[in-house]
Computed example of a mutant assay.
Amino acid sequence: MSRAAILGAGAMGTMIADGLVRSGWSRDSLVMCARRPARIEELIALGYVATTDPVAAIADADIVILSTKPKDVGAVLGAIRDHITNRQVVLSVAAGIEIATLEAALPDNPLFRAMPNTPAGLGRGATGFAVGPRATGSDIEAVRRVLESVGLAVQVTEDQLNAVTALSGSGPAYVFLLAEALQSAGHALGLAHDVATDLSAHTIAGAGAMLVAGMADAATLRQQVTSPGGTTAAAVDVMLDAGFLDIIERALTAARDRAVELGQAR
């Protein structure tokens, strides 16, 4: 059994820890590191090993996961750089922190950068990850196993991670916005609010499950539901005439461009 240190026990760090436990890791093979003593007590109550000291956290770890806020990454790297061995794999899920930044502090380590999303909390996440220059095939597989504990993991080049951020990193918000719109429209058509809410949520979940199951690609599944001259066609025509596809492309481009700006500002 591998051992992991998770530096940063906020939402994403905890999601990864919980995913690893669901996939068969024991809690005592994970060391969680947080700044607040109150958070340490919470983690210990959940059965995790926890400490406020990042150096102690990484001592026996095979993989070190950086899940702090981006503004705190520099301080954490500074704390561990003289204590980490070059055999330890480092995976950062801190938004916007480039591999070059990690490499400046940890020049001899296998380095990885990943962008998960919030459905990771249910084991249904979608994560893109990029690989640094010193990573071996076994390192890549070890990181893939960690990320697959919270859902899908796909390897991309680092320059594609901003696009990953725009598509899947921010993607849950787009789906929630669609759900809001369906709920509101359903209510406007006379459905009770709770009925519109439940129908919207289950429609989105069911349609997503069909895509994930690989029953067909998105265009084919849409066409199968869209009978010529029918109700679905009437609705889809309104969306397409309003520029729906262009709106989505412009939205993702805006998110990608903002990710680039934020990365350059750090």
Rank of each mutant, 00 (worst) to 15 (best):
V164L: 08
A153R: 07
L211V: 12
G128P: 05
I99V: 13
F129H: 04
T136P: 05
A205R: 06
V93S: 00
E98H: 09
N162P: 06
N86V: 01
V143T: 11
S138N: 14
S138Y: 11
A120T: 00
A173F: 02
L177W: 02
G206R: 10
N162M: 05
G190Y: 03
I84L: 14
D108C: 08
D217V: 01
V154K: 10
E103Y: 02
I97L: 01
P110C: 06
A126L: 05
E158D: 14
T197S: 14
T85D: 14
M215R: 12
G128A: 09
F112I: 08
R134W: 02
A181V: 13
A104K: 15
L189T: 08
G171H: 00
V154D: 07
A120Q: 04
T85E: 06
V156G: 01
T118N: 01
G137Q: 14
G128Y: 02
H187L: 11
G214E: 02
G169N: 10
N162I: 00
A216R: 09
D159R: 05
T165D: 05
T136V: 03
N109K: 09
A104S: 14
D194K: 05
L199T: 13
A213V: 03
V90E: 10
R134F: 04
G206N: 12
G206Y: 09
E103V: 04
V131M: 05
F129T: 08
A163F: 02
D139G: 05
A166P: 11
L102V: 09
A188T: 07
D139S: 01
L161K: 01
S184G: 13
G137S: 15
A104E: 15
A130S: 10
